[in-house]
């Protein structure tokens, strides 16, 4: 077989190999995204097949809608509660666990356990633990002379409760990422730092650990932010957005509009907004991961 002939069959084979995946990517990603965009310009509802193009009316409605503003508010407030914890607690845990000698692997497993579980199922356990009446948490609070908390019934508390559950489920994951980042810091940098006089824990952290952890920290921050914006499961199972829309977060609102009220056009606009936010985070990450590579 000549080289060019071989090349030809190879190219033909290549097309054959990518064909199924390409078709499916078209069917599952590209065409639906186009339809989401087109749909967001219509007043399509699943209930009636009649629809017309309304231009950017859906977007105008979105930015004027109190319900949307409320959902966005809730999402950001929840993210504000969730992100610092998801970042700082995980980092502190990773550093503390890394310095443990005998117990390191035991602790790693214990903290990682929630990550391996199905959040939908564990949400029910949390609901029982956080039960305002006979839940273990309120009983414990009472033992210490603290007031009982209506974890899911109080509008001012419900986002804290959801944030606690989410933190519980993600800390182990972020901790493992940080641990991987910490382990990959060359040991001799700490030794060089010790020779140079930076042997105080504070110096070690600010001179070596923190700067060297940069890319990992950025990754954790971005993936946690996306996770925060994707809050859905616990809301759907535990609160359904209540009480009085106090826990109605962005993705849950989009779900309601699309699949409960069948406002497909409006829901499509919400979806695109959501995609915009995700893209933004992806861009931030791409930007920083280029900048933060050292060697």
């Amino acid at each position: 077989m000549t080289v060019s002939k071989r090349q030809q069959t190879q190219t033909r084979l290549a097309y054959l190999l990518v064909l199924p995946a390409t078709l499916l990517i078209l069917a599952i990603y590209i065409i639906p995204i186009l339809f989401v965009f087109l749909g967001s310009l219509t007043d399509y509802t699943l209930v009636s097949d009649y629809y017309e193009f309304v231009g950017f009316e859906n977007y105008r409605q979105m930015f004027g809608d109190e319900v949307f503003a409320n959902a966005l508010n809730n999402t950001f407030f929840y993210a504000l509660l969730f992100l610092p914890g998801a970042f700082i607690i995980s980092l502190v845990l990773a550093i503390a666990i890394q310095e443990q000698k005998q117990f390191r692997s035991v602790l790693e497993v214990l903290y990682f356990l929630p990550v391996t579980s199905t959040l939908a199922a564990m949400a029910l356990v949390w609901a029982a633990l956080m039960d305002s009446g006979q839940g273990v948490i309120n009983n414990t609070l009472q033992t210490f002379g603290l007031p009982r908390v209506n974890w899911f019934g109080n509008e001012d508390v419900v986002l804290y409760s959801l944030a606690i559950i989410s933190l519980w489920s993600i800390i182990g994951f972020n901790m493992v990422l940080f641990l991987a980042g910490l382990t990959s810091i060359p040991k001799n940098l700490y030794e060089a730092a010790a020779m140079d006089g930076a042997d105080h824990p504070v110096d070690k952290f600010f001179r070596v650990t923190w700067p060297m952890l940069g890319p990992t920290a950025m990754f954790v921050a971005v993936t946690s932010s996306i996770t925060a914006f994707k809050l859905f499961d616990t809301v759907a199972i535990l609160t359904q957005g209540g009480p009085d829309r106090a826990s109605e977060v962005f993705l849950y609102l989009a779900f309601l509009e699309g699949f409960e009220y069948f406002n497909m056009g409006y829901s499509a606009a919400l979806s695109l907004f959501f995609l915009g936010i995700i893209f933004l985070f992806a861009l931030i990450q791409a930007f920083f991961s280029d900048r933060n590579v050292h060697y």
Partner: peptide, 30 residues
């Protein structure tokens, strides 16, 4: 005595320079 108090300097096999610091900052560290 801690390493820094021994009045000893060391050059590591792969130099162990702090990658996030400039040359000047590296040298100024001690």
């Amino acid at each position: 005595a801690a390493p820094k108090d021994r009045n000893i300097a060391m050059v590591f096999q792969d130099y162990a320079l702090y990658p996030h610091m400039s040359v000047g900052e590296n040298m100024a560290m001690p």
